[in-house]
């Protein structure tokens, strides 16, 4: 065959794509590119610029160099806030991953194909489709410090406590984590369930013939399949937990004292409650930096390079 292809190809005028065709893809992208520029790129640049100024309510920014960042690291609140952030993010992530995993394996492997399993998973979606404000109201009612709160009422009814417990001052962080976790589980659960569902039925049959225990099926067949979805969920949820403040703000507004103030909530409070825009911008840039480092760390931890590596096939 070689002697056929060795011959030089006939030389003719090379085909040139007409300009009209070349520009087509860009025409389609353009409107969205404009949106990306206005809503993503410009605010990011503005935040960076702001962090080097002393912009505040007076709206007369002055360049102050690294002054804001120096202040952040000298802030006496910082150690507590960082600790709160770490506790909130790590516990929320760990609990929501564990629940998502257990629910997915239970409903998609042990109870595969059962209507009840599907209904059960749908129920878990409820917290994530209810508007956050309504959802928070429910949690506040649940743990209301007066006798009117649901938990307190039950405890009093059964005589387990003699006085209503002030939950939000005793266990604010636990409530914040609980509420956050319950509403985030469904996201991971959907991805993991889909991944488990994609495992061919034949693999389970082969495992049965090979005498595999449930433990082996889960550890050697199901878990390896979940590696990439788990990586995605870990990273996206972690970034979410580190940078979200909305939920905590509605539930406790960082209190009591600063017990549930995380770094991103602190940035929000500095910028919008106290109108220290420059300082708030600097804090939020630190949040971004933390998220970035964590993402890289987890990509490495999950051995992401392996996934991009092409597979080798020969006959």
């Amino acid at each position: 065959m070689d002697h056929l292809t060795d011959r030089p190809a006939a030389v003719g005028p090379a085909y040139r794509k007409p300009f009209k065709k070349k520009i087509y893809p860009y025409l389609f992208i353009m409107p969205f590119a404009a949106l990306v520029l206005v809503f993503f790129v410009l605010p990011a640049l503005a935040t960076v610029a702001m962090s080097f100024t002393d912009l505040n309510a007076s709206m007369k920014p002055k360049f102050v160099g690294l002054e804001n960042f120096k202040r952040v690291f000298a802030d006496y609140n910082l150690p507590d806030i960082l600790r709160n952030t770490a506790i909130f993010a790590v516990l929320s992530l760990a609990i929501s991953l564990l629940f998502a995993l257990v629910i997915s394996v239970a409903t998609q492997y042990f109870l595969k194909g059962k209507i009840a399993a599907v209904v059960y998973r749908v129920l878990w979606l409820i917290p994530s489709i209810i508007p956050a404000v309504v959802y928070v109201t429910f949690w506040k009612y649940l743990f209301d410090p007066t006798e009117g709160g649901l938990v307190n009422r039950i405890l009093l009814q059964f005589g387990l406590e003699s006085d209503p417990v002030s939950w939000f001052s005793k266990a604010a962080m636990a409530i914040v984590i609980l509420a956050t976790v319950v509403s985030t589980i469904s996201g991971g659960m959907i991805l993991l369930s889909a991944a488990i569902n994609s495992i061919p039925e034949d693999l389970y049959k082969a495992a049965k013939v090979d005498g595999a225990s449930e433990k082996s099926v889960i550890l050697k067949i199901i878990m390896p399949t979940l590696k990439w979805p788990l990586m995605y969920i870990t990273i996206s949820e972690l970034i979410g937990f580190v940078s979200s403040y909305f939920f905590i703000m509605l539930l406790t507004n960082g209190g009591p004292m600063r017990d549930t103030t995380t770094l991103s909530l602190y940035a929000y409070q500095q910028a919008f409650n106290l109108k220290y825009y420059g300082y708030g911008a600097a804090v939020s840039l630190i949040v971004v930096a933390i998220s970035f480092v964590l993402t890289l760390l987890f990509l490495r931890l999950f051995d992401f390079d392996e996934m991009i590596k092409p597979s080798r096939i020969e006959d």
Binding site: P200, D202, L203, K205, A206, A207, V209, K220, I221, P224, T225
Partner: peptide, 15 residues
Amino acid sequence: NIGMVFQSYALYPHL
């Protein structure tokens, strides 16, 4: 005490 070969081979992909 049977061995079985499936149409899809059903090899464990991660082993």
